[in-house]
Amino acid sequence: MASQGTKRSYEQMETDGERQNATEIRASVGKMIGGIGRFYIQMCTELKLSDYEGRLIQNSLTIERMVLSAFDERRNKYLEEHPSAGKDPKKTGGPIYRRVNGKWMRELILYDKEEIRRIWRQANNGDDATAGLTHMMIWHSNLNDATYQRTRALVRTGMDPRMCSLMQGSTLPRRSGAAGAAVKGVGTMVMELVRMIKRGINDRNFWRGENGRKTRIAYERMCNILKGKFQTAAQKAMMDQVRESRNPGNAEFEDLTFLARSALILRGSVAHKSCLPACVYGPAVASGYDFEREGYSLVGIDPFRLLQNSQVYSLIRPNENPAHKSQLVWMACHSAAFEDLRVLSFIKGTKVLPRGKLSTRGVQIASNENMETMESSTLELRSRYWAIRTRSGGNTNQQRASAGQISIQPTFSVQRNLPFDRTTIMAAFNGNTEGRTSDMRTEIIRMMESARPEDVSFQGRGVFELSDEKAASPIVPSFDMSNEGSYFFGDNAEEYDN
């Protein structure tokens, strides 16, 4: 783990906690998980779902989305002020799938948001429990990260689609708070800032007046979040320049895209947490497990152990491969979309394939898809080993990566060399080191050039047997250095459309 220093740990961010010791953190995270579980059980009762239907990941996603929508204050306010045809701002819903006479049927349900809020609060001892809501947002974000390569979004903001390893959390809503900021990748933060800068260039009043003052505060806050992700002084200094700019424009845009590229080699610290679907927490609570009393951590053995003992089902389209669908969801559960496939294969105990080789589309089923041909199958979400999630980018030494994705962002704290394609990355730096950030740029390029592919990161860190909950005997895996390590390699994943 990167030293926490003055930073709060993510469990504290996750639970809005002030400084807590490890036991208190485990208890408050457990409380959050228990609340999600209780809410899910109650919703299944309301909807009269069978046990099997309640364990269907598509039903879980609909129920999670309903509660997130019920608590989305800004959108609710907007919907009330701008009524649109056929949208009731006070209601929320989605597809629920039921097994009827041996076939899967889709039923569109509609609930009062007020009623959903009441059920959620009741499951969370009367609190709004925003930490639990954020947790579900991060699960949705991790699922998107594993399912889609955001080529269009990258290109629109002047970045290269091969930089997708920097895009963790790119679909997280803005209201996801400190826990959300911690899991956002460098590219995601750059993209958010670039969008602001572009608006400022096109709209003279963007930075002016009372609204402009708020915009400015948001801009500086985002700059500080991004600065905190960088691990070298030169990158941090460049972020200070971007933040202090009187009138952010093209120079800042250039600096930010430069920094994003540099992060492929001088990786930023991005938190990883295993956020599971509500249909995993519900049955665990129903079986009598007391998360608050037992304590829970999002970055240790607990999620692995929970998945070892969970039964989750998914709808499967006619030509999809259930094992591939399982891999997709497994990666999402562990926030591992940008991790090295060699490491993932070792931990999972079966070969993890790149996205383009998977015969599976996303987990969600569109409303126009034919239910007649839908089957369902068990998702295999178990693992051979477990490993500690990392909050750091690993040290800054790398190795060759593949054509589709030119770097990785480690999820697990496991000893290995970190793949990246130096030639491709360095070719993108057209040696432009003039301007006010020239000395920093020169320094950053120097550090990137001296990074050695064969150097090892996370020295001495290994994986653990599932029986080793105290992480007492690390097993340090050895990897084939020459092997392909990137998930979005030469990829044809669908595009994420909101």
Rank of each mutant, 00 (worst) to 15 (best):
Pro277Lys: 05
Arg19Phe: 10
Asp439Gln: 03
Glu24Cys: 06
Arg267Ser: 07
Lys273Met: 07
Pro173Val: 11
His272Val: 03
Gly187Arg: 09
Val343Met: 10
Ile444Tyr: 08
Phe253Trp: 03
Leu143Asn: 03
Tyr219Trp: 15
Val456Asp: 07
Thr257Glu: 05
Ser60Trp: 10
Ala146Pro: 07
Gly349Arg: 10
Glu443Asn: 08
Gly158Tyr: 07
Trp207Tyr: 09
Gly349Ala: 15
Phe39Pro: 00
Asp439Glu: 14
Thr411Ser: 10
Ile217Leu: 11
Arg305Met: 11
Glu24Val: 03
Gly394His: 08
Arg19Val: 14
Pro354Gln: 15
Gln58Met: 10
Leu466Met: 12
Arg199Asp: 06
Tyr289Leu: 14
Val312Trp: 11
Glu454Gln: 13
Asn368Val: 15
Tyr296Val: 05
Arg441Gly: 07
His324Gln: 11
Tyr385Val: 04
Lys87Arg: 14
Gly460Phe: 01
Ser170Asp: 12
Ser486Lys: 11
Arg305Gln: 05
His82Gly: 06
Asn142Gly: 15
Phe429Gln: 03
Gly17Phe: 00
Ala233Leu: 01
Met105Trp: 06
Ala181Thr: 10
Ala146Glu: 08
Thr130Cys: 01
Ala278Met: 15
Thr215Arg: 09
Glu469His: 08
Arg121His: 07
Met447Glu: 12
Thr360Asp: 03
Ser376Arg: 05
Ala234Ile: 03
Arg416Asn: 02
Leu172Trp: 05
Ser3His: 15
Tyr487His: 14
His334Lys: 00
Phe338Tyr: 15
Ile57Asn: 09
Ile425Gln: 07
Thr257Asn: 15
Glu254Trp: 02
Arg19Ser: 14
Asn205Met: 03
Pro318Gly: 12
Gly300Pro: 06
Tyr385Thr: 09
Arg204Thr: 01
Arg246Phe: 05
Lys325Phe: 10
Glu14Gly: 10
Asp480Leu: 05
Phe71Cys: 09
Ser28His: 04
Ile388Lys: 11
Asp290Cys: 13
Ile25Gln: 01
Glu192Tyr: 10
Met159Tyr: 03
Arg65Ser: 09
Arg355Leu: 05
Ala428Thr: 10
Asp160Ala: 14
Arg74Tyr: 15
Ala27Ile: 15
Asp72Gly: 12
Met13Ala: 06
Val183Arg: 01
Ala181Met: 12
Arg267Ala: 02
Gly17Asn: 08
Ala337Arg: 00
Gln399Ala: 15
Thr215Trp: 02
Gly93Leu: 01
Gln58Glu: 09
Tyr296Phe: 14
Ile201Tyr: 14
Gly94His: 12
Glu220Cys: 11
Lys31Arg: 15
Glu73His: 11
Thr232Ile: 06
Ala284His: 11
Ala70Val: 10
Ile138Asn: 10
Arg74Val: 02
Leu193Asn: 04
Glu494Ser: 03
Phe304Leu: 13
Phe39Cys: 14
Thr396Arg: 14
Glu73Ala: 15
Glu115Met: 07
Leu298Ile: 10
Val343Leu: 15
Leu108Thr: 07
Asp302Ala: 03
Tyr281Arg: 13
Lys91Met: 07
Arg19Trp: 06
Asp421Tyr: 15
Ala251Val: 15
Thr232Asp: 01
Leu358Ile: 13
Phe304Asn: 11
Ser269Asn: 06
Ala146Gln: 14
Lys90Asp: 00
Gln168Met: 09
Ser287Gly: 10
Lys48His: 03
Arg293Ile: 05
Asn432Met: 10
Leu256Phe: 10
Val343Asn: 03
Thr424Tyr: 01
Phe489His: 04
Thr92Ala: 13
Ser60Cys: 15
Gln364Ala: 12
Gly268Ser: 14
Gly394Phe: 05
Arg174His: 01
Phe489Gly: 02
Pro248Gly: 07
Ser262Lys: 06
Val456Glu: 05
Leu328Gln: 08
Ile316Ala: 14
Met331Lys: 07
Glu73Val: 12
Lys103Ile: 03
Cys333Tyr: 04
Leu256Val: 14
Ser176Phe: 09
Arg150Asp: 03
Ala146Met: 08
Val242Pro: 00
Ser3Phe: 15
Ala129Lys: 12
Ser3Tyr: 04
Ser383His: 10
Val414Asp: 01
Ala451Glu: 12
Thr23Met: 12
